[in-house]
Design a protein around this nucleic acid. Sequence first.
DNA 1: ATGGTTTTTACTGCGTC
DNA 2: GACGCGGTAAAAACCAT
Length: 327
Amino acid sequence: MPNRPNSQANDSDGSGDEEDGSEPTESSGQTNTCPECGGDVNPGERQGERYCASCGLVIDEESVDHGPEWRAFNEQEKEEKSRVGAPTTNMMHDQGLSTNIGWQNKDAYGNQLSSAQREKMERLRTWNERFRTRSSKERNLKQALGEIDRMASALGLPDDVRETAAVIYRRALEEDLLPGRSIEGVATASLYAAARQSGSPRSLTEVAQVSRVQEQEFKRAYRYLVRELNLEMKPVDPKQYVNRIISDLEMSEDVGRRSRELLEHGQKANVHSGKSPVALAAAAIYAAGLLENEKVTQANISEAANVSEVTIRNRYRELLESANKTN
DNA sequence: ATGGTTTTTACTGCGTC
DNA sequence: GACGCGGTAAAAACCAT
């Protein structure tokens, strides 16, 4: 079990700078007597601080608590305590916590078992194995679905998207695609895929903002899922991003309509291929804003859409060009 | 691994309020 | 002078091979 909340994980070599006797140092041989009453100093069971066991004087409260925050009693706390990483190992499907029945057919004294007993043990082993994998999968699923739910509501995605995500995740689980990947990563990837399939995509960056894992990690998981589960993912239509960005910026529906027009034209003029759809949507909105006399700064759009201003500039010029030609 | 393409980062110059 | 905008070069990220 890695990562118990061990009190001091200081690797300081303690290269003796002890000019001041009363100040407890962090060297390996920590001063363990209280400067106030001379009592023993508790080595820091209370997270992040060391204090005197007899008089309670806090000796050192700056020390970093490297242990995870273990306890969360409800959803809210669970969210807040997100610092908790992965203290258990995902390498084993049950995180190494389950019971195992030894393979030797001997009893606790080392005597051979009777053949009847031996058969019984065989049966127990297989059932134990079945039960173990089954229950671990259920736990896994439960956690993943919780994550999916949390992220989906943070992204304002409707229930049917969650359902789809859950289905994808289940399939991944059934086909044993999980080992080697984190539950969160795959859960996030499932949600991303589901949102895309259901026509209300969220960009990778958006999803990453509510996920516990980094963009890169779940992107890898996503690609993997698409490949292994043969999910057909059509390229995202930039128009699908328009509405959300518009409402983020509190712009009128006129601009929305205009943006979509511009995108249509762009599509015909083949401006789209190979370009990031979010960027195109952002650029179209900027252009539409100019055309409709609803000015928004590039900086604002850039922020709302998570696309750099430079990219917006480049795309919106192209869009306007193509619009001019086709009109 | 590599090369080609796209996006981002950082910086500069110009005009306007 | 700050702000919005445009442009550029180099770095980083992405993707297919």
